[in-house]
Design a protein around this nucleic acid. Structure first.
Lengths: 265, 265
DNA sequence: ACAAAAGTGTTAGGCCTACACCCATGA
DNA sequence: TCATGGGTGTAGGCCTAACACTTTTGT
């Protein structure tokens, strides 16, 4: 179906429907960050906003948000299955290479979840527009600025500028959901490079949850879960002392999840 | 704003937007149940469905779902604040009496939360219709059948008939969300009469979570939370041996919640 | 008196938390 | 050699889960 500007007539008024996506990234320097785009047109011209766009008639809201995510991050994505707000509340987007041969990056998936509908009557000055909000966790290193004409930039979560529409409200909801989720799902790994160290992982958790953990306790708990594999390589950014490297073992996690599993902090 | 059938023209096609609400109730005999309405018109005429309706241009999706809930349950409701999918993920609807003098029932609030948007392209045969789904917890005793012309009926959660649209999918999501929430919020009390016994409360938890608890451990844990007040009265359905009665102390709960509080099972 | 349901306490194991010292590296 | 940051183990308290008998009531 092609979106064609034209004349569409209905017996009852209908709202426009958009999706907006809070794209989270993380690195040690900036901490938890989000990807924003600068609006090129009115309303809120030149204000920063969450990436988003209008729902097409032939796509689900999931697909719409994924499309936007793909446009902003430059990642090519294919959908594993459709879920909406189904009980399968986890959504993995596997990257699809332009050609199979070109795909050499190790991990190409992102966590993706619907937050919900934001529908304040006055949230968009253009008229009645409701938005289905999503959040995604991406590996920041793989997404250095969008590749389309729009200006896109990462902002540390504590230095987010004033946002367009009700996007600050959406952001608060996304943060709230992220904090909630990370208690139960090992989604933090989606924000890190495939190989990481325990201190990095701990800093990530501390950045998201805004708390401090004891090094020994954090490490012990993580390793006890049995979902981390030690990796022989060394990280490029060796500190004063070189820490041990780990890799998230998704298979072991899926096994454990099947027989009831809770990850709490 | 009055909804008027007429001619509404837009430059781009727009979906219709509805809300649907999974209304949960509970009693000892039937266990966890939901309120369904029998559709009087096509599509899915004579099939059971979740109560729902179209979003009006002057109301948020929260207000729309509340309006439907009110129509089905006969409860008059006022909104405490608007939340959408905000981080204030809890929503309390306080009943508003026709006149203050008439309000003699003790507890008049219900738990109410948005689940999310369901937007499968083919979910409604009438065309592109997306639905914002909600669930609500009500005291079943106060809602014995809708009072409008539509046929409304309670169904135990394990005897739900085949539903219209994608409502079975929405129901699965609602159950999943309910199970998740009850781990952290004492929302179960919204499903019980104001005065209840520990065995009743335990049966409720067991019905929702589909597990079995040891009586002694369950009681000890509940009482240790300090959010239950012992009450001298007797419940109407006293068993062979008369159990102790309790009342949920919302004030104590709010206090504890403020200083970090987790309710786990 | 018997059946059905409710009340009650203890113990063992696991998990959480708090805490201090040593070692490797780079400056 | 000094500062930085990483690795490591233990002990106490709390929570959890498992477990049986007695009491009350209605039939």
């Amino acid at each position: 179906m092609v979106v064609k500007k034209g004349t569409y007539t209905y017996e009852y008024p209908r709202p426009s429907v958009t999706t907006d996506c809070v794209i989270f990234g993380y690195d040690v320097k900036a901490g938890l960050s989000i990807l924003l785009v600068k609006r090129g047109i009115e309303p809120f011209k030149d204000r920063w906003a969450l990436p988003g766009g209008f729902l097409q008639m032939d796509e689900t809201s999931d697909e719409c948000a994924m499309r936007e995510l793909q446009e902003e991050t430059g990642l090519s994505i294919y959908t594993a299955e459709t879920t909406d707000a189904d009980n399968v509340d986890e959504y993995r987007l596997e990257a699809k290479g332009i050609s199979d041969a070109k795909v050499v990056t190790s991990r190409r998936s992102a966590f993706f979840e619907q937050i919900g509908c934001f529908s304040d009557v006055e949230r968009d000055p253009r008229g009645r527009v409701i938005s289905i909000a999503y959040y995604a966790l991406v590996e920041k290193g793989k997404v250095e600025g969008g590749d389309d004409a729009r200006l896109a930039s990462w902002f540390p979560i504590d230095s987010v500028p004033s946002l367009a529409f009700d996007h600050e409200k959406i952001l608060r909801a996304a943060l709230s959901r992220l904090k909630e989720r990370i208690h139960f799902k090992p989604i933090g790994f989606d924000l890190l490079p495939e190989v990481f160290t325990l201190p990095q992982l701990q800093a990530l958790y501390e950045s998201i949850l805004e708390v401090h953990f004891d090094r020994r306790n954090f490490g012990a708990k993580m390793l006890k879960l049995g979902i981390l594999d030690e990796v022989g390589e060394r990280p490029k950014n060796a500190g004063p002392r070189i820490p041990v490297n780990y890799r998230f073992n998704k298979e072991k996690y899926e096994e454990m999840k099947a027989k009831g599993f809770r990850l709490e902090f």
